[in-house]
Design a protein around this nucleic acid. Structure first.
Length: 290
DNA sequence: CACCAGGCAAGCC
DNA sequence: GGCTTGCATGGT
Protein backbone atom coordinates (compact mmCIF):
# COMPACT_ATOMS: atom_id res chain seq x y z
CA UNK A 1 0.00 0.00 0.00
CA UNK A 2 1.54 3.26 -1.21
CA UNK A 3 0.05 6.54 0.01
CA UNK A 4 0.45 9.71 -2.06
CA UNK A 5 -0.62 13.23 -1.18
CA UNK A 6 -1.48 15.32 -4.24
CA UNK A 7 -3.07 18.75 -4.03
CA UNK A 8 -5.75 18.18 -1.39
CA UNK A 9 -6.30 14.51 -2.18
CA UNK A 10 -4.91 11.31 -0.72
CA UNK A 11 -4.27 8.56 -3.22
CA UNK A 12 -3.73 4.97 -2.12
CA UNK A 13 -2.07 2.99 -4.86
CA UNK A 14 -2.86 -0.68 -5.43
CA UNK A 15 -5.20 -1.19 -2.50
CA UNK A 16 -6.96 -4.56 -2.87
CA UNK A 17 -10.21 -5.66 -1.24
CA UNK A 18 -11.72 -2.18 -1.24
CA UNK A 19 -14.94 -1.47 -3.12
CA UNK A 20 -16.91 1.61 -1.99
CA UNK A 21 -20.22 0.14 -3.15
CA UNK A 22 -19.65 -3.01 -1.07
CA UNK A 23 -18.46 -1.06 1.97
CA UNK A 24 -21.30 1.45 2.02
CA UNK A 25 -24.16 -0.77 0.85
CA UNK A 26 -23.66 -3.65 3.28
CA UNK A 27 -25.80 -2.04 5.97
CA UNK A 28 -23.08 -1.17 8.46
CA UNK A 29 -23.31 2.63 8.17
CA UNK A 30 -26.00 5.17 7.42
CA UNK A 31 -24.28 8.49 6.74
CA UNK A 32 -22.78 7.84 3.27
CA UNK A 33 -24.49 8.54 -0.04
CA UNK A 34 -23.76 7.26 -3.52
CA UNK A 35 -22.33 9.79 -5.97
CA UNK A 36 -21.66 7.30 -8.75
CA UNK A 37 -20.92 3.57 -9.01
CA UNK A 38 -17.41 3.96 -7.59
CA UNK A 39 -17.83 7.08 -5.42
CA UNK A 40 -19.49 7.77 -2.08
CA UNK A 41 -19.58 10.87 0.09
CA UNK A 42 -20.34 11.02 3.79
CA UNK A 43 -19.52 12.19 7.28
CA UNK A 44 -17.75 10.41 10.15
CA UNK A 45 -15.82 11.56 13.23
CA UNK A 46 -16.89 15.17 12.50
CA UNK A 47 -15.22 15.11 9.10
CA UNK A 48 -16.66 15.13 5.60
CA UNK A 49 -15.14 12.93 2.92
CA UNK A 50 -15.68 11.86 -0.67
CA UNK A 51 -13.98 8.58 -1.57
CA UNK A 52 -13.69 6.89 -4.92
CA UNK A 53 -12.10 3.86 -6.56
CA UNK A 54 -10.25 4.33 -9.84
CA UNK A 55 -9.01 0.96 -11.08
CA UNK A 56 -6.81 -0.32 -8.25
CA UNK A 57 -6.38 3.07 -6.61
CA UNK A 58 -8.49 4.64 -3.90
CA UNK A 59 -8.80 8.42 -3.81
CA UNK A 60 -9.83 10.40 -0.73
CA UNK A 61 -10.85 13.86 -1.89
CA UNK A 62 -10.17 17.11 -0.07
CA UNK A 63 -8.62 15.77 3.09
CA UNK A 64 -5.28 16.08 4.86
CA UNK A 65 -2.47 13.68 5.61
CA UNK A 66 -3.21 14.23 9.32
CA UNK A 67 -6.86 13.23 8.92
CA UNK A 68 -5.86 10.27 6.78
CA UNK A 69 -3.47 8.98 9.41
CA UNK A 70 -5.60 9.85 12.46
CA UNK A 71 -9.08 9.06 11.17
CA UNK A 72 -9.52 7.43 7.77
CA UNK A 73 -6.73 4.85 7.96
CA UNK A 74 -8.38 3.34 11.02
CA UNK A 75 -11.96 4.00 9.92
CA UNK A 76 -11.50 2.03 6.70
CA UNK A 77 -9.55 -0.69 8.54
CA UNK A 78 -6.67 -0.28 6.10
CA UNK A 79 -4.17 -2.21 8.21
CA UNK A 80 -6.20 -5.41 8.06
CA UNK A 81 -5.48 -7.96 5.33
CA UNK A 82 -8.88 -8.90 3.94
CA UNK A 83 -7.39 -11.37 1.49
CA UNK A 84 -6.39 -13.54 4.44
CA UNK A 85 -9.86 -13.28 5.96
CA UNK A 86 -11.54 -14.15 2.67
CA UNK A 87 -9.38 -17.18 2.03
CA UNK A 88 -9.99 -18.42 5.58
CA UNK A 89 -13.77 -18.13 5.06
CA UNK A 90 -13.82 -19.57 1.55
CA UNK A 91 -15.38 -23.02 1.39
CA UNK A 92 -15.79 -23.63 -2.31
CA UNK A 93 -19.53 -23.30 -1.75
CA UNK A 94 -21.93 -20.66 -0.53
CA UNK A 95 -19.34 -18.67 1.43
CA UNK A 96 -17.14 -18.42 -1.65
CA UNK A 97 -20.18 -17.21 -3.60
CA UNK A 98 -21.01 -14.59 -0.97
CA UNK A 99 -17.40 -13.41 -0.75
CA UNK A 100 -17.22 -13.14 -4.52
CA UNK A 101 -20.35 -10.94 -4.53
CA UNK A 102 -19.04 -8.59 -1.81
CA UNK A 103 -15.32 -8.96 -2.37
CA UNK A 104 -14.54 -5.33 -1.48
CA UNK A 105 -16.34 -5.23 1.87
CA UNK A 106 -14.45 -3.84 4.85
CA UNK A 107 -15.80 -3.48 8.38
CA UNK A 108 -15.58 0.18 9.27
CA UNK A 109 -14.31 1.17 12.70
CA UNK A 110 -17.19 3.47 13.58
CA UNK A 111 -17.71 5.53 16.69
CA UNK A 112 -19.33 3.42 19.43
CA UNK A 113 -21.81 6.09 20.52
CA UNK A 114 -22.95 6.67 16.94
CA UNK A 115 -23.33 2.90 16.50
CA UNK A 116 -25.46 2.58 19.65
CA UNK A 117 -27.94 5.24 18.53
CA UNK A 118 -27.89 4.21 14.87
CA UNK A 119 -28.77 0.61 15.62
CA UNK A 120 -31.38 1.50 18.22
CA UNK A 121 -33.00 3.46 15.40
CA UNK A 122 -32.59 0.49 13.03
CA UNK A 123 -35.03 -1.70 14.99
CA UNK A 124 -38.05 -2.68 12.88
CA UNK A 125 -37.15 -0.06 10.31
CA UNK A 126 -35.93 0.08 6.72
CA UNK A 127 -32.58 1.43 5.60
CA UNK A 128 -33.81 4.52 3.68
CA UNK A 129 -35.84 5.61 6.70
CA UNK A 130 -33.01 4.85 9.15
CA UNK A 131 -30.80 7.15 7.09
CA UNK A 132 -33.47 9.83 7.12
CA UNK A 133 -33.92 9.73 10.89
CA UNK A 134 -30.15 9.84 11.51
CA UNK A 135 -29.77 12.67 9.03
CA UNK A 136 -32.44 14.72 10.83
CA UNK A 137 -30.81 13.87 14.18
CA UNK A 138 -27.47 15.26 13.02
CA UNK A 139 -28.92 18.31 11.28
CA UNK A 140 -31.02 19.17 14.32
CA UNK A 141 -28.54 18.56 17.13
CA UNK A 142 -25.05 18.10 15.66
CA UNK A 143 -22.42 20.75 15.07
CA UNK A 144 -21.81 22.19 11.61
CA UNK A 145 -18.92 20.67 9.67
CA UNK A 146 -17.60 22.37 6.55
CA UNK A 147 -16.57 20.16 3.64
CA UNK A 148 -15.92 21.36 0.08
CA UNK A 149 -17.93 24.51 0.77
CA UNK A 150 -20.90 22.48 1.98
CA UNK A 151 -22.27 22.49 5.53
CA UNK A 152 -22.68 19.05 7.02
CA UNK A 153 -23.30 18.07 10.65
CA UNK A 154 -21.46 15.96 13.18
CA UNK A 155 -23.19 13.15 15.02
CA UNK A 156 -24.53 14.78 18.21
CA UNK A 157 -22.78 13.89 21.47
CA UNK A 158 -24.58 11.99 24.22
CA UNK A 159 -24.40 15.07 26.46
CA UNK A 160 -26.26 17.10 23.85
CA UNK A 161 -29.06 14.56 23.41
CA UNK A 162 -29.33 13.94 27.15
CA UNK A 163 -30.55 17.50 27.60
CA UNK A 164 -33.45 17.09 25.20
CA UNK A 165 -37.10 16.31 25.91
CA UNK A 166 -39.16 13.81 23.92
CA UNK A 167 -40.87 16.81 22.36
CA UNK A 168 -37.51 18.28 21.31
CA UNK A 169 -36.59 14.96 19.71
CA UNK A 170 -39.91 14.58 17.90
CA UNK A 171 -38.53 16.57 14.93
CA UNK A 172 -36.47 13.55 13.85
CA UNK A 173 -39.64 11.35 13.68
CA UNK A 174 -37.99 8.29 15.21
CA UNK A 175 -41.33 6.80 16.31
CA UNK A 176 -41.37 4.55 19.37
CA UNK A 177 -37.55 4.56 19.48
CA UNK A 178 -37.39 8.16 20.73
CA UNK A 179 -37.50 7.22 24.41
CA UNK A 180 -34.73 4.65 23.92
CA UNK A 181 -32.51 7.31 22.33
CA UNK A 182 -32.98 9.67 25.26
CA UNK A 183 -32.42 6.93 27.85
CA UNK A 184 -29.20 5.83 26.13
CA UNK A 185 -27.99 9.43 25.97
CA UNK A 186 -28.61 9.84 29.68
CA UNK A 187 -26.89 6.55 30.53
CA UNK A 188 -23.78 7.51 28.58
CA UNK A 189 -23.63 11.13 29.72
CA UNK A 190 -24.15 10.34 33.42
CA UNK A 191 -21.51 7.62 33.33
CA UNK A 192 -23.73 4.64 34.06
CA UNK A 193 -22.50 3.35 30.71
CA UNK A 194 -18.87 4.45 30.31
CA UNK A 195 -17.82 3.96 26.69
CA UNK A 196 -14.11 3.94 27.51
CA UNK A 197 -14.65 1.15 30.01
CA UNK A 198 -16.93 -0.63 27.52
CA UNK A 199 -14.12 -0.67 24.97
CA UNK A 200 -11.83 -2.45 27.43
CA UNK A 201 -14.35 -5.11 28.52
CA UNK A 202 -14.40 -8.73 27.39
CA UNK A 203 -16.79 -9.52 24.56
CA UNK A 204 -19.30 -11.14 26.90
CA UNK A 205 -19.20 -8.28 29.42
CA UNK A 206 -19.45 -5.57 26.74
CA UNK A 207 -22.42 -7.31 25.14
CA UNK A 208 -24.34 -7.63 28.40
CA UNK A 209 -23.51 -4.03 29.35
CA UNK A 210 -24.98 -2.88 26.03
CA UNK A 211 -28.08 -5.00 26.55
CA UNK A 212 -28.87 -3.14 29.76
CA UNK A 213 -29.87 -0.21 27.54
CA UNK A 214 -33.55 0.02 26.62
CA UNK A 215 -34.07 -0.79 22.97
CA UNK A 216 -30.90 -2.89 22.80
CA UNK A 217 -31.53 -6.62 22.48
CA UNK A 218 -29.24 -9.30 21.10
CA UNK A 219 -29.27 -8.15 17.48
CA UNK A 220 -28.69 -4.45 18.16
CA UNK A 221 -26.02 -5.31 20.75
CA UNK A 222 -24.22 -7.50 18.21
CA UNK A 223 -24.30 -4.68 15.64
CA UNK A 224 -22.77 -2.28 18.16
CA UNK A 225 -20.18 -4.91 19.08
CA UNK A 226 -19.21 -5.41 15.44
CA UNK A 227 -19.51 -1.92 13.99
CA UNK A 228 -18.87 0.26 17.03
CA UNK A 229 -16.38 -1.82 19.03
CA UNK A 230 -14.86 -3.83 16.16
CA UNK A 231 -15.47 -7.12 17.96
CA UNK A 232 -15.20 -9.21 14.82
CA UNK A 233 -16.61 -12.45 16.20
CA UNK A 234 -20.03 -10.80 16.60
CA UNK A 235 -22.63 -12.25 14.20
CA UNK A 236 -25.77 -10.07 14.18
CA UNK A 237 -28.79 -12.09 13.08
CA UNK A 238 -31.34 -9.89 11.37
CA UNK A 239 -34.12 -11.02 9.03
CA UNK A 240 -31.75 -11.14 6.04
CA UNK A 241 -29.03 -13.13 7.76
CA UNK A 242 -31.62 -15.44 9.28
CA UNK A 243 -33.13 -16.16 5.85
CA UNK A 244 -29.79 -16.64 4.07
CA UNK A 245 -28.29 -18.89 6.76
CA UNK A 246 -31.45 -20.97 6.91
CA UNK A 247 -31.37 -21.33 3.15
CA UNK A 248 -27.65 -22.12 2.87
CA UNK A 249 -26.93 -24.08 6.03
CA UNK A 250 -30.25 -25.43 7.38
CA UNK A 251 -31.91 -26.70 4.20
CA UNK A 252 -34.32 -23.78 4.17
CA UNK A 253 -35.91 -24.83 7.48
CA UNK A 254 -37.15 -22.19 9.93
CA UNK A 255 -34.43 -22.09 12.58
CA UNK A 256 -34.29 -20.47 16.00
CA UNK A 257 -31.89 -17.52 16.29
CA UNK A 258 -29.99 -19.14 19.15
CA UNK A 259 -29.37 -22.22 16.99
CA UNK A 260 -28.08 -19.98 14.18
CA UNK A 261 -25.86 -18.12 16.66
CA UNK A 262 -24.35 -21.41 17.88
CA UNK A 263 -23.80 -22.52 14.29
CA UNK A 264 -22.06 -19.23 13.40
CA UNK A 265 -19.75 -19.45 16.41
CA UNK A 266 -18.72 -23.01 15.51
CA UNK A 267 -18.43 -22.38 11.80
CA UNK A 268 -16.87 -18.89 11.64
CA UNK A 269 -15.39 -18.32 15.10
CA UNK A 270 -13.40 -15.09 15.35
CA UNK A 271 -14.34 -14.23 11.74
CA UNK A 272 -18.10 -14.31 12.38
CA UNK A 273 -18.57 -10.61 11.74
CA UNK A 274 -16.87 -10.75 8.36
CA UNK A 275 -18.90 -13.82 7.38
CA UNK A 276 -22.06 -12.02 8.45
CA UNK A 277 -21.28 -9.03 6.24
CA UNK A 278 -20.59 -11.11 3.14
CA UNK A 279 -23.81 -13.08 3.73
CA UNK A 280 -25.88 -9.96 4.42
CA UNK A 281 -24.67 -8.19 1.30
CA UNK A 282 -25.18 -11.28 -0.85
CA UNK A 283 -28.67 -11.91 0.52
CA UNK A 284 -29.76 -8.34 -0.11
CA UNK A 285 -28.20 -8.17 -3.54
CA UNK A 286 -30.16 -11.26 -4.53
CA UNK A 287 -33.26 -10.20 -2.57
CA UNK A 288 -33.33 -13.57 -0.81
CA UNK A 289 -36.74 -14.32 0.65
CA UNK A 290 -38.58 -11.40 -0.88
C1' DC B 1 -52.70 0.50 -0.53
C1' DA B 2 -51.65 -3.28 2.47
C1' DC B 3 -47.60 -5.01 4.03
C1' DC B 4 -43.45 -4.82 6.45
C1' DA B 5 -38.92 -2.90 7.75
C1' DG B 6 -31.07 -4.96 9.80
C1' DG B 7 -36.30 -5.74 16.84
C1' DC B 8 -37.52 -4.95 21.38
C1' DA B 9 -40.22 -4.88 25.68
C1' DA B 10 -43.92 -6.49 28.11
C1' DG B 11 -47.14 -9.78 29.04
C1' DC B 12 -48.48 -14.35 28.82
C1' DC B 13 -47.91 -19.35 29.80
C1' DG C 1 -37.41 -20.22 29.30
C1' DG C 2 -40.21 -19.71 24.67
C1' DC C 3 -44.11 -17.55 22.18
C1' DT C 4 -47.34 -13.25 21.05
C1' DT C 5 -48.41 -8.72 20.55
C1' DG C 6 -48.05 -3.65 20.23
C1' DC C 7 -45.21 -0.22 18.75
C1' DA C 8 -44.54 5.00 15.21
C1' DT C 9 -43.56 5.95 10.81
C1' DG C 10 -43.07 5.69 6.05
C1' DG C 11 -40.81 2.97 1.92
C1' DT C 12 -42.22 -0.05 -1.67
Amino acid sequence: MEVLHRNNDIIIRNLPDFEPRHIFECGQCFRWDKIDDCTYSGTAYSRGLTISRRENDIILYDTTLDDFENIWRGYFDLDTDYSLIKSALSDGGVMSEAISAGSGIRILRQDAWEAIISFIISASNNIPRIKGIISRLCESFGDPVLYRGEIRYSFPAAERLAGLSLEDLSVIRAGFRDKYILAAAKAVSDGSLNLNVLASMSDADARSALMKLRGVGEKVADCVMLFGLHRCSAFPIDVWVKRITELCFFGGADTNRSVIADFARDRFGELGGFAQQYLFYWARENKIGT
